[in-house]
């Protein structure tokens, strides 16, 4: 049996106000997969991501991380990082200190953490901005810092909750390419929430289309992981076809959500 990074067994989420955020979901995520969650607003994409990050607890069902309990997460080869919708940086700290934060929280000495911080900043191309404060950065740069902070722990699973939603198209495309390169190089599993089906088509090896009322997985769409994710791919017929397919699935999911809401 192949090892799973995340295994979700009939996990569902009902909020304290009685609203069912997620119907029972069963899903296995395997190493090196790049999975996007797309769907209409309120379909539970972020809720599912937060269940996986252990920021929410399932009302029913269970989750396992590398076939273990969440208490094992954080140990060698079982590292998880989360990139939020907003950069969520500490405005009182420099870029360097923001990136170093997860290592500081783990109690790693600066002498050990500093080279890793430098490495993470290099990956996102922000070595020159290490001593700047968040207020001195553009939106795209802040998001890069947030990504560097997630990468500095050398995660095996990276969870991203619509991180590039507030950025312009060009910056978003550039960051998508950076992410694709990063996933190609490292032994990294990526789970990505997005509203953009183009982003999902570009980055993913598997797209989960979700529907609302209640939140559920409506369809799965596989994309060949062997296809190089570069500018040529973005301009190719294959990419256009994938986008078309995803668009159709998204329309069907939205329709299904509306029908469920009326019912």
């Amino acid at each position: 049996m192949q090892e799973t990074v995340i295994s979700i067994q009939s996990a569902e989420k009902t909020f304290p106000n009685g609203v069912q955020g997620l119907a029972p979901i069963t899903l296995d995520i395997f190493p090196k997969e790049r999975i996007s969650l797309i769907g209409p607003s309120g379909c539970g994409k972020s809720t599912l991501l937060k269940l996986i990050a252990n920021l929410h607890q399932p009302s029913e069902g269970s989750l396992s991380w590398w076939n273990k309990d969440f208490s094992e997460v954080g140990k060698e080869n079982h590292r998880l990082s989360f990139v939020f919708q907003e950069p969520t940086l500490m405005p009182w700290s420099t870029v360097r200190k923001n990136v170093r934060l997860p290592l500081d929280l783990e109690g790693i000495a600066p002498a050990v953490s500093e080279p890793r911080v430098q490495e993470a900043l290099k990956v996102v191309g922000l070595e020159h901005a290490a001593e700047r404060f968040p207020a001195q950065l553009s939106g795209g740069m802040k998001m890069r810092v947030s990504i560097a902070r997630a990468l500095v722990t050398r995660p095996n699973l990276l969870l991203m909750d619509e991180p590039f939603g507030a950025l312009d198209e060009l910056t978003r495309n550039r960051l998508d390419e950076d992410m694709a390169n990063l996933c190609g190089k490292d032994d990294l599993t990526l789970l990505f929430v997005t509203h953009s089906l183009y982003e999902a088509a570009f980055l993913s090896t598997r797209v989960m289309v979700m529907a609302a009322h209640p939140g559920r997985i409506f369809a799965e769409y596989e994309i060949d992981p062997a296809i190089p994710r570069d500018e040529a791919f973005r301009l190719s017929d294959t990419f256009a076809m994938i986008c078309q397919d995803l668009s159709k699935l998204l329309i069907e999911a939205s329709h299904s959500s509306l029908v469920a809401k009326v019912a």
């Binding site: 990050a53 920021l55 954080g74 989360f82 939020f84 969520t88 934060l101 997860p102 929280l105």
Partner: peptide, 8 residues
């Protein structure tokens, strides 16, 4: 949430 996730 970040601090919680990192078990601070």
């Amino acid at each position: 949430a970040f601090f919680k996730m990192h078990k601070a």
